[in-house]
Design a protein around this nucleic acid. Structure first.
Lengths: 203, 203, 203, 203
DNA sequence: TATGAATGAGGCTTCATTCAT
DNA sequence: TATGAATGAAGCCTCATTCAT
């Protein structure tokens, strides 16, 4: 990579990092492009060389951060060869992700406020891993489904239900302990998830 | 009520109605207080006599509209004396509400974007019915729980799970048919809800 | 007129006067709305209460200034009851106007750069004199034509040719003495104008 | 010409052609140097190697295009050896040029908006024909004057009057048919031109 | 010569809020 | 109470120009 390309990448990453920082502390609406540029140490015009507008950089951040999150969980799962059932695998990933978000509440806040099924799917589907170690989550999920000993009626719906349930309940539980703490919530949540999965098995 | 008080109420209601109209068509961010006042037929300064700012009127709208929604469902349920089990009652309310939102997607859009468990609970708890016919949803729900033949471990958590699951999945399904239409989703959804309830029964 | 209306009129006129001042000294392109507001002693937002944008205020200025100019000439002509022929009348008006512009080169610069037949006609036709002493130039001209002892083939074309000829040649002659001074140009110009008029007489 | 010089000329001409294209379609103000460079297929910095700024390239374009126009008319006139009188020659050139502009209204728009006597004379005087076939219009005109059977009082003033009259009236007539179409205007225009010329003859 | 990334001044416009009437 | 004129901060975005490569 040439010296110029390296500088370009640096700038872009500086902008992304700064935007994330500001979005999660100050809030998306209250963060201006001016703020982002200034804090990233680049000119205001430079922002527009890399992103169309505030929404553009936000969407790219969501895609990036979501995938990062799932890749971490995925890599962790790989280390546990004893987890075989899909139920257990999904619970593991959910649990790992929840714990991550518990540690990084700003990330949770940012993702939750912005991540619906639409953007989520879009982010995970369109995301082309630039790093070899990255894995498309949807591919990974479908492989998991296919490798399982059971067949499922509607795996996509199953994923949809689980993701929406987890993301919306965690938001409130982790950030506000409302109506109960995340640790207290977990048993109910996981039991519900297992039920969703069982419901989907074709006998 | 004096003539002056009537005029005051009229103005306030005109502002609320206009704000709802504009929030749901133009969007919250793109609606200015100027727009609201102008369309409500009152002066811009008048807005500030009744509401602190845009967020204030939005929150009041959410509380109002949410409760309206649940009251409609509640009144409808009263007509069905044959529905006795709490499972069936809850499904009935959810189903009725979903159908309402299907018919009024602008309302869905407005509420979903803004309604998390926090605001929801706040809205439903703090809402003091100004009309005799209105009923506090939380009171109503707790009565339903107590009247049932079963006892439940954590009724609030149960409600939390159901509300979050329903509201987040419906948003995507009704508005975008993603990942499937609301009618196709219903069986999965209701089955999951029944499981959540069953899980909570104390044997 | 109420106190408020008086203040409004004051602001508007301050903006118009300042804009004219800046357009004619600094140039239209180099004048920003910020400049106009600041120099007019009003807030930037106030500008937008009275004018849509820079082009709006410019057009209103052109209409206003053009009519002012012609009204002066008209009023002067009224004092010369000995000028009877339309040829003489037109020459008088042209001559008077040229002399005015000679004294007010900034006005000339402003009008010439912006005044084509289209805007000119528009300005003079649509201009509704708010002052009793003002007269619509086009009405005035057509009256002159009708009152004359001769009939004319195409009075509008005649006016068109004269206006375009005068305005375009004066610009260069007055402002730059190119290719000759306005005083040296006058004989040629007036002779040409008389020829244009004679050409149009229906025998 | 070396290969490098040829490439340089290519770039310059590409810039000129692109600028003309953009100025006449998008408008001078709305065309940025970025647009010009990009569409010309060269780097933005390259623009500054050949032109000082946007005004510089515009002026060069005016000079170039104006002369091109008159050269075409001149070459056409050469084919008509039967046109001898200066009156007829001038009318021929004017008529030919008007017809050209009628066919190329974008060119008319571009030139008219920018071409006053000052720039015009500048363009035609300073223009050093780089091509052998090109002729300096002013030289050509003065030759025509000297060769004629009559002597003229002020040939330059005569030219000035004619050019300003034609260019300002044509703009409105060709582009907007205001106040009449160019074809309807021609008789009045040519008659006026002939009068201007006759007025200038020294008996 | 040629490039195009980087800059930041500067323009336009909106809008929440105030306050004199 | 009710109004809406006035404000100016703040946001967005463009673009001429420079300069390291």
């Amino acid at each position: 990579m040439s010296k110029i390309d390296k500088k370009k990448k640096e700038k872009k990453e500086s902008l992304l990092a700064t935007a994330f920082e500001l979005f999660t502390t100050t809030g998306f609406n209250k963060t201006s492009i001016s703020d982002i540029s200034k804090n990233a140490g680049v000119g205001k015009g430079t922002f527009y060389l890399y992103f169309r507008d505030k929404y553009d950089i936000r969407n790219k951040l969501i895609a990036h951060k979501s995938n990062e999150l799932f890749n971490k969980a995925h890599n962790e799962l790989l280390k546990h060869s004893d987890i075989i059932d899909i139920e257990d695998k999904i619970i593991f990933i959910v649990d790992y992700t929840i714990d991550e978000l518990k540690e990084n509440q700003r990330l949770l806040n940012f993702i939750s406020k912005n991540l619906g099924w639409g953007i989520f799917k879009n982010a995970l589907t369109n995301y082309s891993p630039s790093d070899e170690n990255e894995v498309s989550f949807l591919d990974y999920y479908m492989n998991m489904i296919n490798d399982d000993k059971y067949k499922f009626k509607a795996p996509e719906v199953m994923l949809f239900l689980i993701i929406e349930l987890v993301s919306s309940t965690c938001y409130s539980a982790i950030l506000y302990n409302e109506p109960l703490s995340i640790d207290d919530l977990k048993p109910y949540l996981y039991s519900t998830i297992r039920n969703i999965i069982k419901d989907n098995i074709i006998d």
